[in-house]
Write a protein that binds this DNA or RNA. Structure first.
Lengths: 175, 175
DNA sequence: CGCTTGTTTCACAAATTTGTGAAGTCAACG
DNA sequence: CGTTGACTTCACAAATTTGTGAAACAAGCG
């Protein structure tokens, strides 16, 4: 049987999306699923990964809940859960068009910058945990020195990453 | 200062093994669990996270399967699964002492360097996936440009991280 | 050689996670 | 104001993951 994706032939045309977007060709779907698989393997929850990938591969970078459900063949509830997760970790923004009930979800223009900023919060938490560990085992013990080195490494990383992201940003801007 | 190592002390049999095993005070157990929780939250499987944390907090940086089970109150099977995972991702090394059946699991001396090297492999995979995505959506489309930028970012990161790790290593060595 | 002990494997039970249908909520439109 | 349609929440079913006991396996030791 033909594996064409179900295009809901509703009376309302999905507007807001550029004209070429109406299709969702299999190659794109393949890419979306492959990327989602990579992300999932890295510890990302499945549905958020799929939704994120789908948004990234969309023309305008933003889709409505209905469009997402249509492309990914998932229920509105699944979309809802996924977008809630994604906006909590600041990977997407929700935007409401004034005269419409349709909410649109958009990948942040500087996704990577955002993602890295999130990591920064995690890093700080780890630094705190490791620091408490140094005290717990005693700073003068071998374990204490080992854990203290971890604190140093993480601090190093946090600082360098901040610098790195700044560098990326300016490089981007001038291109 | 007879801070006894995790070394098997002799023919004595550990009876009534509990969390309060000497050489493993509650503060340390707390740290281990807290760190494991942080790692788990970051997508790390639970048992590997606990085992890794426990090794990191141990005096010698290496423990036997029995010792791990004792400290973490888990079955040999759970230890086995966790250490297999950890050695697959190159976070620990297994070492066999010549005259003993006891295998010891050791956190790599340069854990962080190792961890980052792993990330490098993941990065490459992502770069490959994103690259295929550019073709899938068409390089000239907005989506194509968005995904191409991701490829650039990931490549940037891969290169910079390599440089960064080298810098960390030399900084370490000279201290 | 076989016993003894530490480790791995296997099958299964428990717990957690995932995704769905259906009811509920809210706001734009007639 | 009531209707309508888009999104959310809730309770539950399915699927996956986790960890265990028990049996199998291997290697030192008597």
């Amino acid at each position: 049987m033909t594996q064409r994706n179900e295009q809901q032939p509703g009376p309302e045309q999905p507007q807001g999306e550029s004209a070429g977007e109406d299709g969702y060709p299999p190659e794109v779907a393949d890419f979306v699923e492959r990327l989602a698989a990579d992300l999932t393997e890295a510890g990302f929850p499945r549905m958020p990964a799929r939704v994120f990938s789908c948004l990234l591969a969309s023309e305008s970078g933003s889709l409505s809940s209905a469009e997402l459900g249509e492309r990914l063949l998932i229920s509105p509830a699944a979309v809802s859960g996924a977008v809630r997760y994604l906006s909590q970790v600041h990977l997407i923004a929700r935007e409401r068009q004034p005269g419409s009930r349709r909410e649109r979800y958009r990948v942040h223009a500087e996704v990577w910058y955002e993602a890295m900023t999130n990591r920064d919060a995690v890093l700080n938490r780890w630094i705190s945990t490791f620091s408490s560990g140094v005290e717990a085992v005693g700073p003068e013990s071998p374990a204490g020195r080992r854990i203290a080195e971890s604190v140093e490494f993480l601090t190093f990383m946090r600082n360098e990453m901040a610098a790195l992201m700044e560098r990326w940003r300016t490089t981007r801007r001038e291109s």
